[in-house]
């Protein structure tokens, strides 16, 4: 599913529904930042780990908000889960994303995994396996910008930007300024992909 910006805009103009626009995404992230601060008692000992590509941008945005509210910078990293996926054999080998852990590592920390869309839960399962090889966090939590349902594993998010009831034939596409030049979450019908 690779979309160019031009595609995205033409979709947006035709029939695809924009579920969240830029300001909505921003408000959702601000709320999640506050929830993280609340749930982790002031974000002591937390590490935000984004799942490439867009989860990493979201993790950086959350860290920026937390810095703004509390004046403290929380470590941010990225966690590529490609080598741990359970569907590797279904497609040709794919390029790897970047894994970068903060200098202090994740041992004893509260790791907040950040992803753009939570769907089957399989990516999160891969991420949990990957974490297992990298250290032993005190706890792992999950933040997702959009939860579209249809879980195939017993996994639930701790922080959600928007719960989005979808049908399996629909496609949720997240665009972020850093990657795609604008902020939006679109809901596309199968025939529009």
């Amino acid at each position: 599913m690779v979309f160019s910006l031009a595609d995205a805009i033409s979709h947006a103009q035709s029939s695809a529904r924009a579920v969240l626009e830029g300001p909505d995404i921003n408000r959702a992230l601000i709320r999640i930042s506050h929830e993280i601060l609340e749930r982790t008692k002031g974000a002591q000992d937390i590490v935000l780990l984004g799942i490439p590509t867009r989860g990493v941008h979201l993790a950086h945005r959350l860290a920026a908000h937390i810095r703004q509210f509390e004046g403290r910078s929380v470590p941010v990293g990225s966690l590529d889960v490609t080598m741990y996926r359970d569907d590797l054999r279904l497609r040709p080998a794919r390029a790897l994303g970047r894994t970068e852990l903060p200098a202090d590592g994740i041992d004893g920390k509260i790791v907040v995994l950040v992803d753009d869309v939570l769907y089957s839960g399989r990516t999160v399962r891969s991420a949990l396996d990957a974490l297992n090889d990298l250290g032993r966090p005190q706890a792992v939590q999950l933040a997702a910008l959009v939860d579209r349902g249809h879980r195939e594993l017993p996994i639930r998010p701790d922080y959600v930007g928007k719960n989005l009831p979808t049908s399996k034939s629909e496609i949720v596409k997240v665009y972020l300024e850093e990657n795609d030049g604008r902020d939006a979450v679109l809901l596309l019908k199968e025939d529009e992909k």
């Binding site: 080598m83 741990y84 390029a95 790897l96 970047r98 894994t99 090889d133 990298l134």
Partner: peptide, 23 residues
């Protein structure tokens, strides 16, 4: 370039304490 970029990412594995992937 794909092989070299992939190797760049995998190079970090040899710095970890668990030098193994389930792939």
């Amino acid at each position: 370039l794909l092989i070299l970029d992939t190797a760049d990412e995998l190079a970090k594995i040899s710095e970890r304490s668990i030098k193994k992937l389930p792939t």
